[in-house]
Amino acid sequence: MKYSEHLKLMRKFLKRTTMFFIEHNTMIIFFLILIISANVSEVFFTQTNLSNLTRQVAGIGLASIGMLLVIITGGIDLSVGSIAAMAGVLCAVFSSTTPLSIVLLISVASGIAVGSFSGYLVAIHKMAPFIATLAMMTIARGLGFIFSNGAPILLADEASAFIEFGSGYWLGIAYPVWIFLVISVICALLLRHHIFGRIITAIGSNEEAVRLSGIRVGIHKLSVYAISGGLAALSGLITTFRTGVGSPIVGVGMELDAIAAVVIGGASLQGGKGTAINTLLGVLILGMIGNIMNLISIPAYPQQVIKGVIIIFAVLLQKFQSKSNHN
């Protein structure tokens, strides 16, 4: 082979690898943080820590998956944290008097109802998603306080099955984590291979063109908010199962973590772009950052600063990615 051919091959190889890195940057950030974590703390890779970590992120993760669907349509859902609290409270309130399956139903349905109402405002009344879900955020939080009379409620003894579920394992992985994983996989399948995913992505890309193609934009937009509400409620249930109380003050700021996870996962707030797997990685990245900082006992305030910096860093990387795709 001639020298120039070698050079050409070399350049091709370099180009391929950079392309690979740019395309899979979420995954790379994930491994980077994983490696760093493993090195700065011996505790990180222990069974207990990993199990704690995954259990902590499962709740946020569920809300993030819902958030992803909303963000893909070009919207945003600020109400997830409040819905989680409301659902948790409802679960605890009804746990003493009602069959457990009905309790679950009520709690999840309440989340779907609040989400659907946001979706109705956005889809039918063309209200800005930020505003509609901001209103629903305070409404759901208020309802949580009303149902609980402002104080955390203990799960009734009749609901011990919930507690068992919250602390149970299968194949070494906690049940709540399984739920999160299963939902993530379903969401990934929907987004990649199902009409629903195709349509909501298209709506985020160009709503008017989708409408003119004879597709019902309204119902699809409404349903992403409904799903987001449902998943947020599920996330609240998981918290209640884990802690044994339904508290009206959990999930404050959860919407921001969910948005951060989705954005770190490479989704665009303009809509039309995002994958479930990357969101899952985004959730894990955020979780690991928090976890490792706790392990090496960084105080709470600097933690927040560091977290913010890492979010900026991750999103900058993606900007770089979309730029290089463009050229």
Binding site: R198, A202, N206, E208, A209, V210, L212, S213, I215, K273
Partner: peptide, 21 residues
């Protein structure tokens, strides 16, 4: 640009939009 195509989606996704069912 505003109404006919979805610029940041693939050709395939654009063309299939009317016959997804």
């Amino acid at each position: 640009k505003q109404q006919g195509v979805l610029l940041n989606l693939s050709i395939k996704n654009n063309i299939s939009l009317t016959s997804l069912d």
